[in-house]
Amino acid sequence: MLAIILFFVLHWYLSLFAQSFFHHRYAAHKAFTMGKGWERFFFIYSYITQGSSYMSPRVYGIMHRIHHAYTDTEDDPHSPAYDKNIMAMMWRTSITYVNIMYGRMEVEERFTKNVPNWGWFDRWGNTWYSRILWSAVYIWFYVVFAPSAWWYLLIPVHIVMGPVHGVIINWFAHKYGHVNFETDNTSKNLFKVDWLMLGEGYHNNHHKFPSRTNFAAKRGEFDPIYPVIVLLLKLKVIRVTTVPVKAQSVHS
Rank of each mutant, 00 (worst) to 15 (best):
H11T: 15
W12Q: 07
W12P: 08
Y13N: 04
Y13K: 10
L14F: 14
L14S: 09
S15D: 06
S15P: 08
S15G: 11
S15Q: 01
S15W: 06
L16D: 06
L16K: 07
L16S: 09
F17W: 13
A18P: 12
Q19K: 05
Q19V: 12
S20H: 08
S20M: 13
F21D: 01
F22E: 06
H24M: 04
R25A: 00
R25L: 03
Y26K: 02
Y26A: 01
A27N: 00
A27H: 00
A28E: 03
A28C: 07
H29K: 13
H29M: 13
H29C: 06
A31L: 00
A31I: 02
A31T: 11
A31D: 05
F32I: 09
F32G: 00
F32T: 02
T33P: 02
T33I: 13
T33A: 15
G35I: 05
G35E: 02
G35D: 03
G35L: 02
G37C: 05
G37N: 11
W38M: 13
E39Q: 14
E39T: 11
R40E: 14
R40S: 12
F41H: 07
F42Q: 05
F43K: 02
F43L: 09
F43R: 01
I44R: 02
I44W: 11
I44T: 11
Y45Q: 03
Y45F: 15
Y45S: 04
Y45M: 12
Y47W: 14
Y47V: 15
I48D: 10
I48G: 10
I48S: 03
T49W: 03
Q50L: 05
G51T: 12
G51H: 12
G51C: 14
G51K: 09
S52L: 02
S53L: 00
Y54W: 06
Y54N: 01
S56E: 12
S56R: 06
S56I: 09
S56D: 10
P57S: 02
P57A: 02
P57L: 00
R58P: 09
R58K: 07
R58W: 15
V59I: 09
V59H: 08
V59S: 04
V59A: 01
Y60K: 04
Y60D: 05
Y60C: 06
Y60W: 15
G61S: 10
G61I: 09
I62N: 06
I62A: 04
M63I: 14
R65M: 06
I66T: 13
I66S: 11
H67I: 09
H68R: 04
A69P: 07
T71C: 10
D72T: 13
T73N: 11
T73I: 11
T73F: 04
E74A: 11
E74N: 09
D75Y: 00
